[in-house]
Design a protein around this nucleic acid. Structure first.
Lengths: 253, 253
DNA sequence: CGGTCGCTTGATAATCGTCAATTGATGTGG
DNA sequence: CCACATCAATTGACGATTATCAAGCGACCG
């Protein structure tokens, strides 16, 4: 992990680049304001970790390239993947909190982020009402996402959970202007399983089943969405017999 | 559901009462500032709903008396309880979000809330840095809670989930200055089960098991925490054989 | 007093996890 | 450059956890 402070000569191009990467949901003028607050650029190798105990973070992080996972560590050594971050998403929105908690941010592949110190963020927000509203909106958006994950974990079956993952991943990649059909996943099956509250074996079997249904193609970490609508439709279906039940291939007629 | 705008003559006492109810985490001066933004008092009967489609909410809601649940509705008619709100908690922190989503707030019993219009909240936050930080902190705190729920749903077994519920409920009631030993639950088993991603039957059996372990006493909706430490300890344990497995009573010696 | 609803308890079954073995990819040291 | 180790992923057989189905009981309400 290497951190580079922003130098005066690169500032102009960097700000422009940053403004382009900020979420579209933000008005252009506000993106311009935020861009000028970039204090440093940080580069990560796969597996590099940004630890985040209590509120030791002191900056927001915009993903520019690559992807991250946030991981919560249980008392017992259990790990739970909470969220995957794609380019143009902001990380550490939960670090405004005063209460202690433990989530790490781990780069899933070579990655680069821009850092915005909380101090400049806050002083700017006090001056600029539109910026302030955007900021509040981002934290609130992230909360809505987390509540959506709660719904997924509490109410959906394994098949639907994987459909949820594929669908939200597709959307995230669209927002990031990445290919939303041919998806080279940056995370392992284990990461996906942890996020979905399943095991790697279940994820593997469900991917195989979806491939047999001709909804997707699976080639190691490359997933091709052959019929994204049918994948999404799995979410609304009343689930029939679980694809994890063996006897699927036993029938022939 | 009845809504009363704040009238000039009651204002003084109401502001004081409100300041007392705001979370301790907030500095006293900030609580005083926020108190003056109360625009109305709303009273709910059990089952009354505050619907919350898209960002149609236009106010934060402080629970003064009673309790609420927030419920997310799936495409399919599925319901998932996302969170329980106790007195001195703020509701609708996710309504700053621009994106559409569907969570309802439902009163679990007779309840009363104070309303703070977003407009006054935001204009005040722009003037007062401490207030601004508190506000951001609340949304962020709520996000940390939601991530904790994700951990619970994704990584914990049924017994541990119920222990989690009892433990966090105890803490919430302490913050609300309610009895943290003898707990009269305002929600049904079905609500608890939905929140924990289980069925009512499982919740019922697990409560019975904990009672047989002399950790709690159960009398309909009244739960007495006989040994809160042992309940909490369930969270750190490597779970042995599930209490939901029948043959527990078969042993004697 | 009858009906509904919340809760409990038991018997059975489905989903998904565990255990185990195999393959292929990646990386390392000789 | 190849043997070797390691790890990710897949697949199969089996089993545990928890859901489902069913019945009964008590509380509350009209």
């Amino acid at each position: 992990m290497k951190s580079y402070p922003v130098t005066p000569n690169e500032a102009a191009t960097l700000f422009q680049h940053c403004a382009d990467r900020l979420p579209r949901a933000m008005p252009a003028s506000t993106r311009a304001v935020l861009s000028r607050l970039v204090a440093s650029v940080v580069e990560f190798g796969a597996g590099d970790t940004l630890v985040h105990l209590g509120s030791s973070f002191n900056a927001l992080h915009l993903v520019v390239d690559g992807a991250f996972k946030s991981v919560m560590l249980g008392e017992d050594g259990q790990q739970q993947v909470i969220h995957f971050y794609w380019p143009s998403e902001l990380m550490a929105l939960d670090a405004f909190s005063s209460r202690t908690h433990a989530t790490d941010l781990v780069a899933l592949e070579t990655a680069r982020v821009y850092e915005f110190p909380f101090a400049s963020i806050e002083s700017e927000a006090l001056k600029d009402a539109a910026f302030f509203e955007s900021l509040l909106g981002f934290v609130s958006d992230r909360l809505v996402e987390a509540e959506g994950d709660q719904f997924m974990l509490g109410s959906l079956q394994a098949t639907q959970r994987l459909a949820f993952f594929l669908t939200t991943t597709r959307q995230a990649r669209e927002h990031a202007h990445l290919d939303a059909v041919v998806i080279d996943l940056p995370m392992t099956r284990r990461d996906i399983a942890s996020y979905l509250g399943l095991t790697t074996e279940s994820v593997s079997r469900l991917l195989g089943w979806m491939e047999r249904q001709a909804m997707i193609r699976v080639d190691r970490r490359r997933i091709t969405l052959l019929d994204a609508n049918r994948v999404k439709a799995l979410l609304e279906d009343t689930p029939g017999m679980s694809p994890l039940t063996n006897r699927s291939a036993a029938m022939h007629g």
